[in-house]
Design a protein around this nucleic acid. Structure first.
Lengths: 349, 349
DNA sequence: GAGGTCATTGTGAGCGCTAACAATTCATGG
DNA sequence: CCATGAATTGTTAGCGCTCACAATGACCTC
């Protein structure tokens, strides 16, 4: 760090100082075995002294590997996508890769295409698309790029390689939990129609009810926001006393709105209506009442999807066939059980 | 797109197909003026036909510009940092830059140093550090790197160039609003001690009270989480009837906890105690009651900080002197005014 | 019609690194 | 004491692009 030339030192500079060839410096940097310890030490010293760092562009040009991955994320601060993003970066860094991100406001063929091009121009070797909207999955299938693309959050609909939490199972856990608590039926406030994960949760909820011999009521729709949950909650409140005793809400934020609407309508949770959410955001423990919900392990999602993408880059896995499912987990809180233990009523049917 | 050679086409390939020199292709790509329209069209056609894309590594090597910026973010899903991250990427992309992110779990000299090295190895031309913790600011000042670093979220303490929302002003807006509503004094639930923004909010709150001739009570401490807000709320509930009528909480999530604790203690908001939060997260409108809070415009933060960083990279701005302040905004909701209009009581003093 | 100017295009030399191969050193055994 | 091969080091040629400069040709002007 003693010098301060206008241009950063090159490998040749280090080689000169160490009295070796640039190739030997390269070997030291690359942990090549056939270098004498003494030489290695000499080179290391020169590197330290000059504060030398390998030029990544030159390296990338020579090796044809940039060691950079791209991530396309929706421009959102939703808990799921944000958590996934961090988990992805961490997993990628552990493998020595840099992560470049592009955030898009809407997931359409155009925006996705632009995002992929931007990343492509940045030289990424592969891309993870956090693409929860169904349109995005279709767009992704359509957009061929010279590098592999792995989707995350696409639910069951992935025609592209993907890693996903098993949403169907998550919905089953939530719905089954309510049925096991003695509820005759379970209503559902679903997420946006074009989100595959929302559709999968609907399917899991519906299947669980049908297997229990219950005709599923018409699901309500929200847009993930507390406001939409609030609106739906007002509607749901009107059904209390007419068979509505339990609601499975497709995410925690909407559940927050539902809880508020119910409270305002004089409906008690969970005594009158039990509520289950989805995601287990940090706040859900502090809702009134604390929310029973389904937890997704985003850290695992990150690791598995990065592993899959690297496999694809190395050509270890046939593209198009790789689908990874990750198990979610039910977290029981006061919004379904007001007291310590469940009613213990056997499920109907 | 018709060919599919093992290696992607190079500029020379395109040149050959178009019947020109590689340099002419380069000129077309670079929008150089002195190219005949006919030639340009010919080249464009060849580019299309081969699906050619410039190799970014080669370009970076030749120009010594990677057109990549780095961002260091705390591994968090807090609303502020997440919003900032997206805003930064958008602003950078608008300037033609790619953004590489590194997320760290803790902001220490070691983790920051590693993060900067990782980005440095990725060839970034500059870095934005989302560094709200005071320790991070110090660490940043200590860590010299061969590229400029701009801090965001460092509040007033930046010894490095930075762009920040004026936290002092935000706290004044919140506190002044409560005083203007007739409250004799305002309590404060602060954020973590080592967050500079938290300290700035404390300072703004304290200054406002002192200017009104009020002795500030001892501030309480939280860690931004709803749980810590809940705990503090329980403590605050004990002071109701002994002079506590208004609380300024340093973020919305803690305010959520405070609201719940107050409610459980039989304290009504805002009739017994008025509460103001900070951030204006999307959920705060749906708290019980809807939360009065201070909104920060992260999109502006993103644009201004990227602009500053690019100035620094181009050498347009002397390093170390650049500090940008952005104005926050008060959003009034039911947690301070139960009815349509404020009490209209004149502030004391 | 010679000389000059301008627009347009081409040529050659790197950018800093790695990969392949060539050269050297060194220990070892016959 | 030299041949033999392994260990170690050096040399050369690109990777695909941009930059500086040279070359070409069209079009004027006097």
């Amino acid at each position: 760090m003693t010098h301060s030339p206008l241009r950063p030192p090159t490998m040749a500079d280090v080689a000169r100082l160490a009295g070796v060839s640039h190739q030997t410096v390269s070997r030291v940097l690359g942990d090549h075995p056939n270098v004498r310890d003494e030489t290695r030490a000499k080179v290391q010293r020169a590197i330290e002294e000059m504060g030398y760092r390998r030029n990544s562009s030159a390296r990338a040009l020579a090796t044809r590997r940039t060691r950079t991955l791209g991530v396309v994320a929706s421009n959102t601060t939703l808990y799921g996508p944000a958590s996934t993003l961090f988990a992805l970066e961490e997993a990628a860094r552990a493998e020595g890769y840099l992560v470049s991100t592009v955030s898009v406001r809407k997931l359409t063929v155009e925006t996705l295409s632009e995002a992929l091009d931007h990343l492509s121009d940045g030289g990424v070797e592969g891309v993870i698309a956090i693409a929860p909207q169904r349109s995005a999955v279709e767009a992704l299938a359509e957009l061929r790029r010279p590098f592999p693309v792995v989707a995350v959050g696409t639910g069951s609909a992935s025609t592209v390689p993907s890693a996903n939490v098993d949403q169907h199972l998550g919905a089953r856990l939530a719905t089954g939990h309510l049925l096991a608590a003695g509820h005759r039926t379970v209503w559902h406030l679903a997420g946006p129609e074009d989100w595959q994960e929302a559709a999968d949760r609907v399917a899991g909820w519906r299947a669980t009810l049908e297997e229990a011999g219950v005709e599923p009521p018409m699901p309500l729709r929200g847009d993930w926001s507390p406001l939409s949950g609030y609106r739906a909650g007002q509607e749901l409140a009107g059904w209390v006393g007419r068979g509505l005793t339990a609601v499975f809400v497709a995410n925690d934020q909407m559940a927050l709105g539902v809880l508020r609407a119910l409270r305002e309508a004089g409906v008690r949770t969970p005594q009158d209506v039990a509520v289950v959410g989805y995601d287990d955001i940090p706040e859900s423990e502090f809702f009134a009442p604390p929310l029973t919900t389904v937890r997704q392990d985003f850290s695992t999602v990150g690791q598995r999807s990065i592993a899959l993408l690297l496999d694809l880059i190395e050509g270890r896995t046939p593209s198009g066939t790789a689908q990874i499912a990750i198990e979610p987990q039910l977290v029981v809180r006061a919004s379904t059980y007001p007291y310590a233990s469940p009613p213990g009523t056997a499920p109907p049917g």
